[in-house]
Amino acid sequence: MSTLPFSSSVYAARLDRAAALAADAGLDAIIVGPGPDLQYLVGVEGDTIERLTALVLGPGLAPTVVVPRMELAKVRSTAVGALGLRLADWVDGEKPYDLVADAIGTATRVGVSDALPALHVIPIGERLGVTLELATPVLRESRMVKDDAEIAELRRAGEAIDAVHRRVPEWLRAGRTEREVAADIAEAIVAEGHRTVEFVIVGSGPNGADPHHEVSDRVIQAGDIVVVDIGGAVPSGYNSDSTRTYAVGEPDPATAERIGVLVRAQQAAVDAARPGATAAEVDAAARDVLAAAGLGEAFLHRTGHGIGVSVHEEPYIAPGNDLVLREGMAFSIEPGIYFTGEWGARIEDIVVVTAEGCERLNVAPHTLTSV
C-alpha cells in the first residue's frame, strides 16, 4: 500500500513543472537518478546503486522510470504507481541504457541530476551520442519554492525539533561526555516525531569552535559553552535543523555579552528576509551586526542554506548570492561566532518567506540558556 506524504496530484504537478522548466532551458529531456530530486518528483527514496534506476522526463515525453525488476515493488508503492507512470524494467544481463535511449528518442540536449554518478552518466551519454549536461538549474528551480503542503511538513519538523531543544537541559550537565548527551538527544529526536536522525552536534568548550564538530568523548565541564545543532526527517521526508547554544552553569559575563550580540545578529537577518531581498542582503544583515561589535572575523561561514527533502539545498544565504527571495522559499538563518581553542556559539532557525516578510519555524528560546 502506498504511504505517500502528498496526494498523487501534487506529484503530477511537480512532473509537469519539471518538464516545462526543461523546455524553458532548451533541454529535450532530463534524467533523474535516486536522491533528493527523485524523492521530490515521485516519492522514490534511496541512494544510487550499481543497477540503474532513473526517471526520464521532458517536453513531449511520457515520464518513464527505468528500474531493475527486483526494485519494481518498491517503485510501484510510490507516486510512480499512483500515477501509472510508464515502467521500463530490466534484469541483470540486459542493458538499461538502451531503455533510457528508447524513452528519450532523438535528442540533442539532455540534462542529468547531480546525484547521478559517472558510473551511469558516461554510458548513458555514449548510448545517446550526446554530451550530457547538468539539469541542476531545472531541478533547483522546481524545489526551491515550497508549496503549502511542503511548508506544513517543514513546520511539523520545526515543532518536533523545538521539543527536543526544550529537553536538552535534562541531559546536558558537567561530568557527562558529548557522546552520552548526543545519544539521549538522538533518542528524543525520534520520540518527538522524526523517523530518522540526520545529525547531532554537541560541541562543548573548545570543540564548539569547530562549526562541523560532531561529538567526542570529551567530558563536559562546568563553565562550558555548548553548541547543540540537531535535525532529522519527519515521516514525509522533510527535514528539521536547529541550533541553540547552552552554558553549563553561569557563563562568563564577557562571553554572555558576545552571545547576546550573536542573538541580535540572527534577529537582524530574520528581519531582513522578505520577498524582493537578495540572499546576500540577508547574509549581510547578520554579518554587519557582528562586524560592528568587532566579531566579524569570528563568523566563519554563510548565514544559511535551503531545506526540504535535503538538509542542505538552494537557496544559499551567502555573500555574493544575488538570488532574489520569493514567497515560499525556506532556509536556515544561522550566524555563528567561533574562537579557536576556547568556545563557539551558533543560533539557527528555519524560516519561510511570506508575502510580508518571513515566518520562523523554530521558536525555542534563542538567548543563551544556562543548564
Rank of each mutant, 00 (worst) to 15 (best):
A163W: 05
S332W: 05
D241F: 07
A279F: 03
A152V: 03
L132A: 04
P253F: 08
E327M: 06
M329H: 00
A160E: 12
A82V: 04
I225Q: 12
I124H: 10
I201C: 06
T106E: 15
G232H: 04
P251F: 13
P319C: 05
G328W: 14
A233W: 10
R244D: 12
R155G: 08
L4H: 04
V75P: 03
G341L: 10
I337M: 04
A285K: 03
V363R: 14
G308F: 09
A298D: 12
L4Y: 00
A298T: 15
D37W: 09
V91C: 09
S113Y: 02
I122W: 13
P335E: 09
Y338Q: 15
A20F: 09
W90Y: 12
A298R: 10
V65L: 11
G231Q: 09
F6H: 15
H312R: 14
I30F: 00
L368H: 09
L83R: 02
A186N: 00
A12E: 13
T255C: 06
T255H: 07
L116C: 03
G43Q: 02
A293T: 01
A29I: 04
S236V: 10
A101T: 00
A19G: 10
R302V: 11
G84S: 04
G208D: 11
V10T: 11
E180K: 07
V67M: 09
A298C: 13
S240R: 06
Y238P: 02
E45K: 09
F199A: 02
A163T: 10
E281R: 08
G158N: 15
A286K: 01
G357M: 05
P137L: 00
S240N: 09
H212K: 14
E170W: 10
T78I: 14
V130M: 03
S9N: 11
A284K: 11
